[in-house]
Design a protein around this nucleic acid. Structure first.
Length: 430
RNA sequence: GGAUGGGUGGCCGAGUGGUCGAAGGCGACGGUCUUGAAAACCGUUGACGUUUAACAGCGUCCGGGGGUUCGAAUCCCUCCCCAUCCGCCA
């Protein structure tokens, strides 16, 4: 959420930003509500002040008559206060519900455009796109032949969009987790295993909408909880309501969690196999920073993502995400798109990671601030998040890029310590 | 899930329904003293909103929400959380 005051003061810039982001907001209504809100607050304060004054005079009343008079006056003032407060809370609720739809402002350099078509490629990874002199298989075929991905069992047990990993698939997943965490710990991140569920108020603060028509979120019946779609939710929420010391910043966390997504309305679109699944494991980076550090931190997070995929030997490019594709909280976002040779016809780039600077947009709703020692007041922190490894998609990229003519798949060198072999061979039917 | 006891400022800890934003202590910060430090002494020490050019006011906040009352940290209801014991369980 943006700051109320900021929205009213910079109305034009906010409106333009909404246009760029493809979001329609009823600014007239918002302005009306905010005006009324600004009238009500001093009115309530003043009425309450009078009531307090009258109250204080009651014990000092000269006689019972005067006392009764004061009591009546006090009662009437309190009634006025509660009526005004009721109006204020209604006005505030309406105003907030509009405000919540206003997306974050956008970085001046972010490409302006409606959707991902406008995303700008800004960088290539170190690894070349592989040339195959044999018919390329996609990860679904490879995973089946290697006996490491069982989509059919997933369907039997939990329906479409679920899967089993088996044998070296399990080792690969664990290796990817180890690889990511080991790397991040060296970069100064504190590793964290978070809950896979979170309170709806936390989802809300981070910018996810827990319930409703087209929600991405699975919610738990009769409980105020949802399955998380990313550890961004739990990591961001972990410091909600806290006032940090400036000296503690930046705080770097890397979370391991499962991610659950309904993927409502996303069927059919390049979603074969593991690409769009309801559950996967993800290692997520999260940073709480000083406002002055956040731009630099975004580059750092991007740098780590690049290093992870360079060292995995996976070809990718980086895109600077266009305004219309930024979502609500992001001020700027970079996606890494890995080359997936088996995807669509002849291969295509598919998103494997994403890193965003959310500036103070999440911090405002989560109420995460910091304080400079010796100075009055508090300032909202900036929050950033970035995928280190989303296991399911990384798996696609590895299987498809590292496949060989005989149907085997070479294990990326950096993962070998945990997988324990150099090549994963197809199951031999005996 | 059952029983009991609790939730007060950065921490510990008082608090009779009315001048309590809240005693006292600790910590932190500033000062006096000292060559320097410690000790001692003095002072300052929450957040948010709002008014003001500023000084300074005003309002709200004692786990959350609701109620009683002219007035609630204090009484009532409810929810949450924590501790201990019991039950259950990986």
């Amino acid at each position: 959420m943006l700051d109320r005051k900021f929205v009213m003061e910079e109305l034009e810039a906010v409106q333009e930003n909404c246009r760029n982001r493809g979001v329609t907001v009823d600014f007239d209504q918002l302005a009306k509500l905010e005006t009324r809100r600004k009238e009500l607050i001093p009115e309530i304060d003043e009425t309450r002040r009078k009531a307090n004054e009258v109250q204080k005079s009651i014990p000092k009343a000269k006689d019972n008559d005067e006392r009764q008079k004061f009591i009546a006056e006090g009662r009437s003032l309190r009634e006025q206060v509660s009526a005004l407060e009721k109006e204020l809370s209604e006005v505030e609720e309406q105003s907030t519900s509009i405000l919540r739809f206003i997306p974050n402002m956008s970085h001046p350099a972010a490409p302006i455009g409606e959707d991902d078509q406008a995303n700008k490629v800004v960088k290539q990874g170190k690894t070349e796109v592989p040339k195959f002199d044999f018919p390329v298989k996609d990860h679904v075929e490879l995973g089946e032949e290697l006996g490491i991905i069982d989509l059919e069992a997933g369907v039997r047990v939990a329906g479409n969009g679920f899967y089993f990993l088996k044998r070296d698939g399990v080792l690969l997943e664990l290796a990817l987790q180890q690889y990511a965490i080991q790397t991040l710990v060296k970069e100064g991140f504190t590793p964290v295993i978070t809950p896979d569920l979170a309170l709806n108020s936390i989802l809300d603060g981070v910018g996810y909408i827990p319930r409703g028509e087209s929600t991405q979120i699975y919610s738990i019946e009769n409980q105020d909880l949802s399955l998380i779609a990313t550890a961004e939710i739990t990591l961001g929420g972990s410091l909600s309501g806290q006032i940090l010391n400036e000296k503690e910043l930046p705080i770097l966390l890397c979370g391991v969690s499962h991610c659950f997504r309904t993927e409502a309305g996303a069927h059919g679109r390049s979603s074969r196999g593991l690409y769009r699944v309801h559950q996967f494991t993800k290692i997520e980076m999260f940073a709480f920073t000083h406002p002055e550090q956040s731009s630099e931190m975004l580059e750092k997070l991007l740098g780590i993502e690049c290093q992870l995929f360079d060292d995995l030997g996976i070809p990718y490019h980086v895109v600077d995400t266009a305004t219309g594709d930024l979502g609500g909280p992001a001020y700027r976002k970079y996606d890494l798109e890995a080359w997936m040779p088996g995807r669509e016809d002849g291969g295509t780039y598919g998103e494997v990671t994403s890193t965003s600077n959310c500036t103070d947009y999440q911090a405002r709703r989560l109420n995460i601030r910091f304080k400079k020692p010796g100075e009055k007041g508090t300032t909202l922190v900036h929050t950033l998040n970035g995928t280190a490894i989303a296991v399911s998609r990384a798996l696609i990229a590895i299987l498809e890029n590292y496949q060989q003519a005989d149907g085997s798949v070479v294990v990326p060198e950096v993962l070998r310590p945990w997988v324990g072999k150099e090549v994963i061979e197809p199951l031999t039917k005996s």
